[in-house]
């Protein structure tokens, strides 16, 4: 089977039961996407599929042969961090680092959702939401951080969103 991950082609023959997360971690060697719960409850496995954030543990690999999959490794490298990755370092938006790739991928997908005008539970204007701290926290609540770096994560996302605006 053929998968496009971070712009690169991969030929892999996974088990039909293999989740997209396990494909990345166990078959392709991309361990940046993390397994925290394997049930879509913690968000550590978040990747971008065709630009949208998805819990990769909740979807089977075989469903994504025609998709454009982006993982944390595709956003930037240690020597060439993306603005969001660099902002997480600057604002200490992590401690143990295990939920971090999921937080960053989720933040990228989330900002795009806001840009597209998708409303949330806390949006004052459902068709034209403003990116307040409350809005960031609400939309990022699918990504648990047990070290509880939440305020720093919000600081990092706000900074990147502001620079982008």
């Amino acid at each position: 089977m053929h998968f496009t991950i971070n712009g690169q082609s991969h030929e892999v023959e996974p088990d039909i039961r293999t989740s997209l997360l396990d494909l990345l971690r166990e078959h392709v060697g991309l361990t940046g996407s993390k397994k925290g719960c394997d049930h879509g409850q913690c968000g550590a496995c978040t990747v971008l599929i065709n630009g949208r954030r998805v819990n990769s543990c909740l979807t089977l690999a075989v469903m994504h042969q025609d998709d454009d999959i982006t993982t944390i490794e595709g956003l930037g490298t240690p020597d060439n961090l993306s603005p969001m990755q660099a902002a997480f370092v600057k604002h200490d938006g992590y401690q143990c680092g295990y939920c971090t790739p999921g937080q960053i991928c989720s933040a990228m997908g989330m900002l795009d959702e806001v840009k597209k005008g998708w409303g949330s539970h806390v949006s004052k204007d459902l068709t034209n939401p403003e990116l307040t701290d409350e809005e960031i926290s609400e939309r990022m609540s699918g990504n648990i951080c047990r070290c509880s770096a939440y305020p720093n994560i919000v600081d990092a996302i706000r900074e990147v969103a502001g620079a982008d605006a």
């Binding site: 490794e73 240690p78 370092v89």
Partner: peptide
Amino acid sequence: GALKVSGT
């Protein structure tokens, strides 16, 4: 930090 935020 750079290793943690890049998944490496």
